[in-house]
Amino acid sequence: MENLIEKFYTALNNRDAKTMISCYHDDVVFKDPAFGKLKGDKAKAMWQMLCKNAQNFKVEFSLIKANNHNGSAHWEAWYTFSKTGKSVHNKIDAQFEFKDGKIIKHIDHFNLHKWASQALGWKGVLLGGTGFFKKKLIGQTNKMLDKFMAS
């Protein structure tokens, strides 16, 4: 299963959403601080949207560990946040569960306050660590994802 995780992140670095999605089980559940919990087609569409819209994007991954049931990886992403034009370097720890040779559960953990400080500047520094900010961000990202899926 380590090969599956490597395939997933190599595809992400290449902005190849089709290959990424092929690593996901149809019933996949994805969760992170920016999108909240996404299931199935919505989780797959998130990667399509991110790959399509990514600017100055680069990914590196390491510390991949996996057996037939679960796995983990560390990955880092560098990109330009499109709404502000600010550079972001996000450090993420991922956990995976596998079913039928594919990823059935994918949880990304990262410091949302640190991300918001980079992506949004002083507003992120002030508000990025609050529950209000997280709730508002998840609402905005899901609205954007719904719009992407409808187009």
Rank of each mutant, 00 (worst) to 15 (best):
Phe148Glu: 09
Ala119Glu: 07
Tyr9Ser: 05
Lys86Gly: 09
Asn3Thr: 11
Tyr9Trp: 15
Lys102Ser: 07
Phe57Thr: 07
Ala94His: 05
Met46Gln: 12
Ile5Gly: 00
Tyr9Asn: 11
Ile92Cys: 12
Ala11Phe: 06
Met1Asp: 08
Ser87Phe: 03
Ile21His: 06
Leu137Gly: 08
Trp115Gly: 08
Trp115Met: 01
Lys114Leu: 11
Phe35Ala: 08
Leu126Asp: 06
Ile21Gly: 01
Lys114Thr: 14
Gly40Lys: 13
Leu145Trp: 04
Lys136Ala: 01
Asn67Cys: 06
Thr10Cys: 07
Thr141Asp: 00
Ala73Lys: 12
Lys114Gln: 14
Gly139Glu: 08
Phe61Leu: 07
His109Met: 09
Lys18Thr: 15
Phe57Asp: 03
Glu6Asp: 01
Leu145Ser: 11
Asn3Val: 04
Ile104Gly: 05
Asn56Ser: 14
Asn142Ser: 08
Lys52Leu: 13
Ser62Trp: 07
Lys42Thr: 15
Phe98Val: 00
Lys114Met: 12
Met149Asn: 10
Leu137Met: 15
Thr84Ile: 00
Lys52Cys: 03
Phe132Ser: 03
Lys99Asn: 04
Lys83Gly: 04
Asp32Cys: 03
Ile5Pro: 02
Lys58Gly: 09
Gln55Pro: 02
Asp32Phe: 01
Tyr79Trp: 10
Leu126Glu: 00
Phe8Met: 14
Ile5His: 03
Glu76His: 06
Lys105Asn: 09
Ser82Asp: 05
Met46Asp: 02
Ala43Phe: 12
Phe132Lys: 09
His113Leu: 13
Glu60Val: 14
Ile64His: 06
Ala17Val: 06
Asn142His: 00
Asn70Thr: 12
Ser117Ile: 04
Lys65Met: 08
Gly71Ile: 00
Phe57His: 15
Thr10His: 04
Tyr79Met: 14
Val29Gln: 14
Asn90Cys: 11
Phe81Tyr: 15
Thr84Val: 00
Cys51Phe: 00
Thr141Lys: 11
Phe35Pro: 08
Leu120Phe: 15
Asn142Cys: 04
Gly71Thr: 09
Cys23Phe: 13
Phe110Asn: 02
His89Arg: 15
Asp26Met: 05
Gln48Ile: 02
Lys91Met: 13
Gly36Ala: 07
His89Glu: 07
Gln140Cys: 01
Asn111Thr: 05
Lys86Glu: 07
Ile138Ser: 06
Ala11Asp: 01
Ala66Arg: 02
Met149Glu: 11
Lys31Pro: 10
Leu127Gln: 05
Asp27Leu: 04
Lys37His: 00
Ala116Leu: 04
Ser151Val: 06
Asn67Pro: 12
Gly128Asp: 02
Leu112His: 02
Met144Val: 09
Leu112Met: 07
Gly101Ser: 10
Leu145Glu: 06
Ala116Cys: 10
Ser87Ile: 11
Phe110Thr: 06
Trp75Ser: 12
Leu126Cys: 10
Asn142Met: 11
Leu127Asn: 03
Ile64Gln: 00
Glu6Asn: 12
Phe148Trp: 13
Asn70Cys: 13
Phe30Ser: 03
